[in-house]
Computed example of a mutant assay.
Amino acid sequence: MKGFFLLFRTDAEGRIGFGAECVGAEAAMETAHFLSAIDPFSQLAQDPLAQLAQSYKSVSLPAGAVIIKQGRPVQQVGIIQSGSAKITVVDHVGDEYVCGRLGPGDLVFDAAVLSGTVASASVIVLSPAICFMQPYNGFIETIEAHPPLKHFFYHNAALGIRWGYEFFSGRHTDAVVVNMRHPAFIRKAIEYIDDNYHHPITLEMVAKATAMSKFHFSRLFKQHMGVSFKRYLNRKRIKAAKQLISQSGYNVTEASFAVGFNDASYFSRVFREEEGSSPKWFLLHH
Protein backbone atom coordinates (compact mmCIF):
# COMPACT_ATOMS: atom_id res chain seq x y z
CA MET A 1 0.00 0.00 0.00
CA LYS A 2 1.08 3.56 -0.59
CA GLY A 3 0.20 6.54 1.58
CA PHE A 4 0.52 10.26 0.96
CA PHE A 5 1.53 13.36 2.85
CA LEU A 6 0.06 16.61 1.54
CA LEU A 7 1.95 19.86 1.54
CA PHE A 8 -0.50 22.72 2.07
CA ARG A 9 -0.69 26.10 0.44
CA THR A 10 -3.34 28.74 1.07
CA ASP A 11 -4.80 31.43 -1.15
CA ALA A 12 -5.62 35.01 -0.17
CA GLU A 13 -8.72 33.88 1.75
CA GLY A 14 -6.91 31.11 3.60
CA ARG A 15 -8.44 28.28 1.55
CA ILE A 16 -6.34 25.18 1.19
CA GLY A 17 -4.59 23.87 -1.89
CA PHE A 18 -2.55 20.67 -1.90
CA GLY A 19 0.50 19.03 -3.40
CA ALA A 20 0.90 15.30 -2.74
CA GLU A 21 4.07 13.44 -1.91
CA CYS A 22 4.24 9.64 -1.59
CA VAL A 23 5.65 8.48 1.75
CA GLY A 24 5.06 4.70 1.67
CA ALA A 25 3.01 2.04 3.40
CA GLU A 26 3.71 3.27 6.93
CA ALA A 27 1.50 6.34 6.46
CA ALA A 28 -1.44 4.24 5.25
CA MET A 29 -1.01 1.87 8.21
CA GLU A 30 -0.98 4.82 10.61
CA THR A 31 -4.15 6.18 9.00
CA ALA A 32 -5.91 2.80 9.27
CA HIS A 33 -4.96 2.52 12.93
CA PHE A 34 -6.28 6.01 13.63
CA LEU A 35 -9.56 5.40 11.77
CA SER A 36 -10.16 2.10 13.58
CA ALA A 37 -10.76 3.98 16.84
CA ILE A 38 -13.32 6.41 15.39
CA ASP A 39 -17.00 5.92 14.59
CA PRO A 40 -18.20 5.04 12.01
CA PHE A 41 -14.93 3.63 10.63
CA SER A 42 -14.57 1.30 13.62
CA GLN A 43 -17.49 -0.68 12.15
CA LEU A 44 -15.40 -1.79 9.16
CA ALA A 45 -13.41 -5.02 9.00
CA GLN A 46 -9.62 -4.83 8.83
CA ASP A 47 -9.20 -5.30 5.07
CA PRO A 48 -11.82 -2.72 3.98
CA LEU A 49 -10.41 -0.31 6.55
CA ALA A 50 -6.88 -0.76 5.23
CA GLN A 51 -8.11 -0.13 1.69
CA LEU A 52 -10.06 2.93 2.79
CA ALA A 53 -6.99 4.35 4.54
CA GLN A 54 -5.23 4.66 1.19
CA SER A 55 -7.76 7.27 0.05
CA TYR A 56 -7.01 9.58 2.99
CA LYS A 57 -4.09 11.98 2.91
CA SER A 58 -2.32 13.49 5.90
CA VAL A 59 -2.43 17.28 5.69
CA SER A 60 -0.52 19.76 7.86
CA LEU A 61 -2.51 22.99 8.28
CA PRO A 62 -1.61 26.35 9.85
CA ALA A 63 -3.86 28.38 12.12
CA GLY A 64 -6.36 30.30 10.02
CA ALA A 65 -6.56 27.77 7.19
CA VAL A 66 -10.12 27.35 5.88
CA ILE A 67 -11.02 23.69 5.45
CA ILE A 68 -14.68 24.28 4.54
CA LYS A 69 -16.02 27.68 3.48
CA GLN A 70 -19.64 28.69 4.11
CA GLY A 71 -21.44 29.37 0.84
CA ARG A 72 -18.92 27.42 -1.26
CA PRO A 73 -19.02 23.82 -2.54
CA VAL A 74 -17.37 21.34 -0.17
CA GLN A 75 -14.10 20.17 -1.71
CA GLN A 76 -12.92 17.75 0.98
CA VAL A 77 -13.92 16.04 4.21
CA GLY A 78 -11.75 14.46 6.87
CA ILE A 79 -10.79 13.82 10.47
CA ILE A 80 -8.63 15.91 12.79
CA GLN A 81 -5.63 13.98 14.10
CA SER A 82 -4.13 16.81 16.15
CA GLY A 83 -4.77 20.50 16.70
CA SER A 84 -8.17 22.20 16.68
CA ALA A 85 -10.66 24.02 14.48
CA LYS A 86 -13.79 26.10 14.94
CA ILE A 87 -17.16 25.93 13.20
CA THR A 88 -18.55 29.34 12.30
CA VAL A 89 -21.78 30.57 10.72
CA VAL A 90 -22.38 34.03 9.27
CA ASP A 91 -26.03 35.08 9.35
CA HIS A 92 -27.96 37.20 6.84
CA VAL A 93 -26.81 40.50 8.39
CA GLY A 94 -23.16 39.53 8.52
CA ASP A 95 -22.85 38.56 12.19
CA GLU A 96 -20.45 35.67 12.73
CA TYR A 97 -21.16 32.98 15.31
CA VAL A 98 -18.80 30.35 16.67
CA CYS A 99 -21.03 27.27 16.87
CA GLY A 100 -18.53 24.71 18.08
CA ARG A 101 -14.96 23.47 18.24
CA LEU A 102 -13.35 20.39 16.73
CA GLY A 103 -10.41 18.47 18.14
CA PRO A 104 -8.55 15.17 17.67
CA GLY A 105 -10.87 12.44 16.41
CA ASP A 106 -13.60 14.85 15.27
CA LEU A 107 -14.99 14.66 11.73
CA VAL A 108 -14.69 17.62 9.35
CA PHE A 109 -17.93 17.29 7.39
CA ASP A 110 -20.85 19.30 6.01
CA ALA A 111 -24.19 17.91 4.83
CA ALA A 112 -23.69 19.82 1.57
CA VAL A 113 -21.26 17.12 0.45
CA LEU A 114 -24.23 14.72 0.19
CA SER A 115 -26.62 17.10 -1.54
CA GLY A 116 -24.18 18.82 -3.89
CA THR A 117 -25.11 22.24 -2.51
CA VAL A 118 -22.89 24.81 -0.78
CA ALA A 119 -21.61 24.54 2.79
CA SER A 120 -23.85 25.85 5.57
CA ALA A 121 -20.89 26.71 7.83
CA SER A 122 -17.15 27.27 7.75
CA VAL A 123 -14.49 25.13 9.42
CA ILE A 124 -11.38 27.16 10.25
CA VAL A 125 -8.19 25.89 11.89
CA LEU A 126 -7.58 27.38 15.34
CA SER A 127 -4.27 25.81 16.31
CA PRO A 128 -1.86 24.17 13.83
CA ALA A 129 -3.47 20.89 12.88
CA ILE A 130 -2.82 17.61 11.14
CA CYS A 131 -5.88 16.17 9.40
CA PHE A 132 -6.60 13.05 7.38
CA MET A 133 -8.43 14.45 4.35
CA GLN A 134 -10.34 12.90 1.47
CA PRO A 135 -11.55 14.74 -1.67
CA TYR A 136 -15.27 15.08 -2.34
CA ASN A 137 -15.50 12.49 -5.11
CA GLY A 138 -13.48 9.96 -3.12
CA PHE A 139 -15.77 10.43 -0.13
CA ILE A 140 -18.90 9.76 -2.21
CA GLU A 141 -17.34 6.58 -3.62
CA THR A 142 -16.38 5.49 -0.11
CA ILE A 143 -19.83 5.77 1.45
CA GLU A 144 -21.48 4.11 -1.55
CA ALA A 145 -19.12 1.15 -1.13
CA HIS A 146 -19.67 0.85 2.64
CA PRO A 147 -23.34 0.91 3.79
CA PRO A 148 -22.51 1.50 7.50
CA LEU A 149 -20.66 4.68 6.54
CA LYS A 150 -23.46 5.81 4.24
CA HIS A 151 -26.05 5.34 6.99
CA PHE A 152 -23.89 7.20 9.51
CA PHE A 153 -23.26 10.25 7.34
CA TYR A 154 -26.82 10.57 6.02
CA HIS A 155 -28.18 10.22 9.54
CA ASN A 156 -25.84 12.92 10.84
CA ALA A 157 -26.63 15.14 7.87
CA ALA A 158 -30.30 14.97 8.89
CA LEU A 159 -29.38 15.90 12.45
CA GLY A 160 -27.33 18.80 11.09
CA ILE A 161 -30.30 20.12 9.13
CA ARG A 162 -32.43 19.97 12.28
CA TRP A 163 -29.68 21.72 14.25
CA GLY A 164 -29.54 24.49 11.64
CA TYR A 165 -33.29 25.02 11.83
CA GLU A 166 -33.21 25.19 15.62
CA PHE A 167 -30.18 27.50 15.61
CA PHE A 168 -31.66 30.08 13.26
CA SER A 169 -35.10 29.86 14.88
CA GLY A 170 -33.55 30.49 18.29
CA ARG A 171 -34.62 27.11 19.65
CA HIS A 172 -31.20 25.48 19.87
CA THR A 173 -29.93 25.35 23.46
CA ASP A 174 -27.37 22.52 23.43
CA ALA A 175 -24.54 24.05 21.39
CA VAL A 176 -21.91 26.53 22.42
CA VAL A 177 -22.83 29.60 20.39
CA VAL A 178 -20.70 32.71 20.79
CA ASN A 179 -21.50 35.86 18.85
CA MET A 180 -18.32 37.52 17.59
CA ARG A 181 -19.83 40.80 18.80
CA HIS A 182 -19.64 39.53 22.36
CA PRO A 183 -16.97 41.30 24.40
CA ALA A 184 -13.48 39.87 24.05
CA PHE A 185 -13.52 38.66 27.66
CA ILE A 186 -16.55 36.43 26.92
CA ARG A 187 -14.86 34.86 23.92
CA LYS A 188 -11.69 34.36 25.94
CA ALA A 189 -13.65 32.79 28.81
CA ILE A 190 -15.44 30.36 26.46
CA GLU A 191 -12.14 29.39 24.87
CA TYR A 192 -10.64 28.78 28.32
CA ILE A 193 -13.61 26.62 29.33
CA ASP A 194 -13.50 24.66 26.06
CA ASP A 195 -9.81 23.90 26.58
CA ASN A 196 -10.00 23.06 30.29
CA TYR A 197 -13.50 21.84 31.22
CA HIS A 198 -12.20 18.29 31.79
CA HIS A 199 -9.84 19.63 34.48
CA PRO A 200 -10.82 21.05 37.89
CA ILE A 201 -11.52 24.69 36.98
CA THR A 202 -13.18 27.36 39.09
CA LEU A 203 -14.85 30.72 38.63
CA GLU A 204 -11.72 32.34 40.04
CA MET A 205 -9.49 30.64 37.46
CA VAL A 206 -11.60 31.71 34.48
CA ALA A 207 -11.99 35.25 35.85
CA LYS A 208 -8.20 35.47 36.23
CA ALA A 209 -7.75 34.32 32.62
CA THR A 210 -9.87 37.30 31.56
CA ALA A 211 -8.09 39.72 33.93
CA MET A 212 -11.28 40.45 35.90
CA SER A 213 -12.39 40.02 39.50
CA LYS A 214 -14.54 36.94 40.03
CA PHE A 215 -17.53 39.02 41.14
CA HIS A 216 -17.42 41.35 38.13
CA PHE A 217 -16.80 38.44 35.76
CA SER A 218 -19.64 36.37 37.25
CA ARG A 219 -22.15 39.19 36.84
CA LEU A 220 -21.15 40.05 33.28
CA PHE A 221 -20.89 36.41 32.18
CA LYS A 222 -24.51 35.75 33.18
CA GLN A 223 -25.59 39.02 31.61
CA HIS A 224 -24.10 38.10 28.23
CA MET A 225 -24.60 34.32 28.19
CA GLY A 226 -27.98 34.09 29.91
CA VAL A 227 -26.77 31.47 32.42
CA SER A 228 -24.35 31.47 35.32
CA PHE A 229 -20.75 30.35 34.89
CA LYS A 230 -21.44 27.21 36.94
CA ARG A 231 -24.50 26.29 34.86
CA TYR A 232 -22.62 26.89 31.63
CA LEU A 233 -19.69 24.73 32.76
CA ASN A 234 -22.01 21.93 33.89
CA ARG A 235 -23.84 21.96 30.55
CA LYS A 236 -20.52 21.76 28.72
CA ARG A 237 -19.42 18.80 30.83
CA ILE A 238 -22.74 16.96 30.55
CA LYS A 239 -22.70 17.32 26.77
CA ALA A 240 -19.15 15.92 26.63
CA ALA A 241 -20.10 13.07 28.98
CA LYS A 242 -23.04 12.11 26.75
CA GLN A 243 -20.68 11.84 23.79
CA LEU A 244 -18.26 9.64 25.74
CA ILE A 245 -21.08 7.34 26.87
CA SER A 246 -22.84 7.05 23.51
CA GLN A 247 -19.84 7.08 21.17
CA SER A 248 -16.78 5.90 23.10
CA GLY A 249 -18.13 3.16 25.36
CA TYR A 250 -17.47 4.89 28.69
CA ASN A 251 -19.55 3.86 31.69
CA VAL A 252 -21.20 6.52 33.83
CA THR A 253 -18.42 6.80 36.41
CA GLU A 254 -15.65 6.88 33.79
CA ALA A 255 -17.45 9.60 31.84
CA SER A 256 -18.10 11.72 34.92
CA PHE A 257 -14.42 11.84 35.89
CA ALA A 258 -13.25 12.26 32.28
CA VAL A 259 -15.21 15.50 31.87
CA GLY A 260 -14.11 17.10 35.13
CA PHE A 261 -16.53 15.96 37.83
CA ASN A 262 -14.81 14.56 40.92
CA ASP A 263 -17.97 13.10 42.46
CA ALA A 264 -20.08 10.57 40.54
CA SER A 265 -23.14 11.25 42.71
CA TYR A 266 -22.97 14.98 42.01
CA PHE A 267 -22.52 14.21 38.30
CA SER A 268 -25.69 12.09 38.36
CA ARG A 269 -27.64 14.87 40.08
CA VAL A 270 -26.48 17.51 37.59
CA PHE A 271 -27.14 15.16 34.66
CA ARG A 272 -30.73 14.62 35.82
CA GLU A 273 -31.25 18.37 36.30
CA GLU A 274 -30.02 19.14 32.77
CA GLU A 275 -31.39 16.14 30.86
CA GLY A 276 -34.49 15.14 32.81
CA SER A 277 -33.25 11.55 33.17
CA SER A 278 -30.43 9.73 34.93
CA PRO A 279 -27.10 8.97 33.24
CA LYS A 280 -27.80 5.26 33.75
CA TRP A 281 -31.01 5.60 31.74
CA PHE A 282 -29.06 7.43 29.02
CA LEU A 283 -26.44 4.65 28.98
CA LEU A 284 -29.08 1.93 28.60
CA HIS A 285 -30.78 3.71 25.70
CA HIS A 286 -27.65 4.70 23.77
Rank of each mutant, 00 (worst) to 15 (best):
N156F: 07
L49T: 05
G14R: 14
F8W: 10
C99R: 14
V259S: 00
F215S: 14
G103V: 03
I67T: 05
L6F: 06
A50N: 07
M212F: 00
L126E: 14
D91I: 05
A50L: 11
S169F: 10
V123P: 01
S218A: 15
H172Y: 08
R219Y: 07
A175S: 13
R272F: 04
K150L: 09
F8I: 10
S218I: 03
M180S: 14
H172K: 14
I245N: 07
V252W: 02
I238H: 00
Q54E: 14
G19L: 14
P147K: 05
S42V: 05
V270D: 03
A85I: 06
E26G: 01
G170A: 06
W163G: 11
I186T: 09
G24A: 07
F139A: 09
I124H: 09
H286K: 15
G94R: 13
D106I: 02
Y97N: 11
F229Q: 09
F8H: 10
E204F: 04
Y192N: 08
V118R: 13
P48T: 04
D39F: 04
M29P: 01
R15S: 13
S169C: 10
E13L: 15
L244A: 05
I143Y: 03
G94T: 06
S55C: 08
H172D: 14
V227A: 11
G260W: 08
M180E: 13
S58H: 07
F167W: 14
L52C: 13
H286V: 12
L61I: 05
A28L: 10
P104G: 09
N156I: 01
G164H: 09
F139W: 06
N251K: 05
A189S: 13
P147V: 02
C131Q: 00
E26T: 07
K188G: 05
T202M: 03
S84D: 01
I16L: 15
Y232V: 10
G105T: 03
S58I: 11
D194Y: 07
A255E: 00
A175R: 13
H198C: 09
G160H: 04
V59Q: 06
A27F: 01
K236S: 00
D106Y: 03
P73D: 07
A111F: 00
S213L: 08
F18K: 13
S58T: 13
G138C: 02
P148W: 02
S120P: 01
E273K: 15
L220D: 05
A53P: 04
G116W: 02
Q223E: 15
G138Q: 09
G170I: 08
Q51A: 10
I80D: 00
R162D: 11
D91C: 06
H155W: 09
D194K: 12
N234S: 13
G64V: 11
A158H: 09
G83F: 03
T88S: 12
H155Q: 12
K230M: 06
Q76F: 05
L44F: 03
S248P: 00
